[in-house]
């Protein structure tokens, strides 16, 4: 899925997958920090996939 979305032009950083066991609260915190950091690096203007109001010509 990730490969495919990127293939059609959604930036790589917009979809994340991870695997955390229920005992790994420290890993959870690390991953949240890391992902938040990565997403902050992306340009918010590039949110291409958001649906806006339908255009009326």
């Amino acid at each position: 899925m990730k490969n495919f979305l990127e293939h059609t032009g959604i930036e790589p950083g917009r979809l994340h997958f991870s695997w955390i066991s229920s005992a790994e609260s420290t890993k959870f915190v690390d991953v949240v920090k890391k992902i938040t950091h990565e997403v902050k690096m992306l340009d918010p203007a590039n949110k291409r996939y958001v649906k806006t109001e339908p255009k009326v010509d």
Binding site: I20, S21, S25, F28, K33
Partner: peptide, 29 residues
Amino acid sequence: NEPKIISFLCNWCSYGAADLAGVSRMEYP
């Protein structure tokens, strides 16, 4: 820039981890 990240967490794994993180008063974004 404060992004919104939708997180889908598995009840048994990451949701448990999130719960534990909360109980242990850990800080995260």
